Amino acid sequence: MAQEAKADAAKADTVKAWSIQGQNTLMLNQAAFSNWVGGGANNVGWLAGVNYNLTYEKGKDLWENIIILGYGQNNTKGIGTRKTQDVINLSTNYGREFAKNWYLSGGIGLQTQFAGGYEDGNNPDAKKISNFMAPGYLNVGVGVTYRPNDNFTATLRPANARVTFVLDKELQTAGTYGLKNDGDSSLFQFGFLGTAIYKIKIMDNINLTNTASVFSNYLDHPERLVLGYSGILNMKINKFISTNVTLDLLYDHNQIQKTQLKQTLGVGFAYNIDNGKKRSDKKDNQSWMK
């Protein structure tokens, strides 16, 4: 009996409340031409990124943290270097369970980019249209989170403050990203924010992660919804090689009154981290070890 008790204690000691799922990627592409009648320009490109989900879950507490960073460039002969990917997306959300799978929650999120963007394909000689924290979006709000399993999370915040920062003085003109006056560096909005993440395992080594969001500003034109969708299709070839296909859709009246679309395809090195198990029936722990 003493030996069994020690074994049970050792087993309990290995149980932890944190789990981590993440991917580190480095995608490379290259093309070369010589006397090619069909035409073409020599080019080389790269894209690096990290995508992490860190979750603490124990008892009635749920704390989710998301870190998404990505940057990429392409250099084409005769054109020069252009940016192909640029994203900073950080968020944290804490919830306290009040009913099965439902949590009273509050959180903060920040979205921006690393470097400047230009009107003519990121040509630095063209008109600048964006930069680091220009725009930058800070969301702070409270509401409820629904999380029935590890593959689906939805958060509804009927009280959410959204601050748009434009810290580049060249871009601080009335109308840019909704700014009211020339020289303004920020725009305050208050409204409803809804977000959802849905992960699908299509087949072995092929996974699709869907992220969607909607924001309505109570203070001014609540019918002008800010809509966003991001899809990441990851096809794992082996432990270190994978293919990623991404699709981003965005509509924001304050940015441009058109639907924005971005799509990327890359094959390269990827290292996945998956130290999380499915939650137990009691949902009171997650293990670091598979």
Rank of each mutant, 00 (worst) to 15 (best):
G121D: 05
N51W: 07
Y137K: 07
G49S: 13
G49M: 08
G72T: 14
N75I: 13
I129C: 02
D120W: 01
Q85R: 11
V87S: 09
P135T: 05
L47H: 15
G136A: 04
Y56A: 05
G117Y: 00
W63P: 06
K58E: 13
F132G: 00
T76E: 10
N74M: 15
N65T: 11
G45L: 04
G121H: 06
K58A: 09
G107D: 01
G59D: 11
A99L: 13
G72P: 13
V87A: 01
L54W: 00
G78L: 11
D61H: 13
Q85F: 02
G45K: 03
I88S: 10
G72E: 12
L110M: 13
Q113G: 04
S105G: 07
K100Y: 08
G136V: 02
W63V: 09
F98T: 08
A115R: 00
N131F: 00
Q111S: 07
N53Q: 14
L47R: 15
T112R: 00
L90Y: 08
L62E: 10
Y56I: 03
I108P: 08
N74D: 15
F98H: 07
N93D: 11
E97Y: 06
F98A: 06
T92L: 09
G116E: 09
L54K: 00
L110A: 07
W46N: 11
L69A: 10
V87E: 07
E97A: 06
L54R: 00
K77Q: 15
N89Y: 08
P124T: 01
S91L: 05
I129N: 04
Y94E: 10
I68K: 15
K60R: 15
A126W: 12
